[in-house]
Amino acid sequence: MTNALSGVFAPVITPFKADLSPDLSLFVKHAGWLMEQGAGLAIFGTNSEANSLSLGEKIQLLDKLLEHGLDPARMLPGTGACALPDTVALTRHAVNSGCAGVLMLPPFFYKNVSDDGLFAYYAEVIERVASPDLRLYLYHIPAFSGVPIRLPLIERLIKHFPEIVVGIKDSSGDWDNLEFMLKAFPGFTIFPASESLLSRALPLGAAGCISATANIQPAAIGRLLASWRTPQAAALQAQVDAVRQVFQKYPMIAALKFATAHYADNQTWDTVRPPLTPLVAQQKSQLLAELDAIGFTMTGLCD
């Protein structure tokens, strides 16, 4: 098995209009900017507010990207849902659209489910999509899903579907878990969820990262990925860490959207779907002050 995908992928933030409907044109613009900066598109990720979007909205958003000529070979849509038919429908649509793969949450409402149950879920999706072009990346984010994807399950899925189950995003925040996976599954495409782990993870075979803050510093992360074997790597790691550490002090989605609104000079970006709420005024002023202090900016958003 070889790495099918590599590099930096952004769980693309989703803009909403005042009536809370997705702003399709602004979504396409931001996705295009990310690709110009060298990032792939992990649309419908956690920081995309994916679980606040309907199946129909996700299909519409993906189709709009394709209509505008964005390359599906650098797209990794999140397709996991609690309802099996929704997961199958979105996964099938992504495969038929030529997407490089899909990033699939486990069904996350029922807790303490068995590995047998999770295996049956993933196997059923694979069998119903029934396409040799499907490339499935597992999404391990137990703090949000409450449903961990354990190592024996990963091993079992690789054994039964070696050409389909090809990778994982590890959002556990547990370095020991990430390190064990990198050593236990050589050739499996493994993405840490933070650029702050890259200097440790890349020498062990990590494929890159799928990171919330790739929405706002894609090029800087890309430079680190390109130069991690060089003497400049430590400085590049420190640069991306400084930005990440600022954003981690705030509710991540609201902070990403406010920063994008500020640097794009477009307040539409500051809208989140309930139950999320925007940053309050004090948080906004503090965030901007911290970003100014480290010389942060986002170029090209107003073009």
Rank of each mutant, 00 (worst) to 15 (best):
V243E: 12
N3H: 10
P77W: 07
G7C: 08
V147C: 15
L198A: 07
L136C: 12
F191Q: 02
A207T: 00
L34N: 07
L66V: 02
F109R: 05
P106N: 14
G69C: 13
I294S: 13
T271W: 08
K29H: 14
P142Q: 12
A281G: 05
Q282P: 03
D174V: 10
A4Q: 15
L118R: 11
V243F: 10
E179C: 06
V240D: 07
A238D: 04
S97G: 13
T79L: 03
V240A: 00
K169I: 02
H160G: 01
I43R: 11
P152K: 08
L105A: 14
R74K: 14
I253A: 09
V113D: 12
A42W: 04
C99L: 08
L20A: 01
P192V: 01
A293E: 08
A120L: 09
L34D: 10
Q282T: 00
K249C: 15
A184V: 00
H140D: 09
F191H: 05
S114R: 15
L197Y: 15
R223K: 13
A89P: 03
L26T: 10
A238T: 06
I221L: 14
H262M: 15
L236K: 08
P142H: 11
I210R: 07
T297K: 15
S285P: 09
L204M: 14
H140F: 12
Q283S: 13
V240P: 10
L26M: 10
A10N: 10
G208M: 09
N215T: 04
L182M: 00
L76Q: 07
L204F: 04
G300C: 01
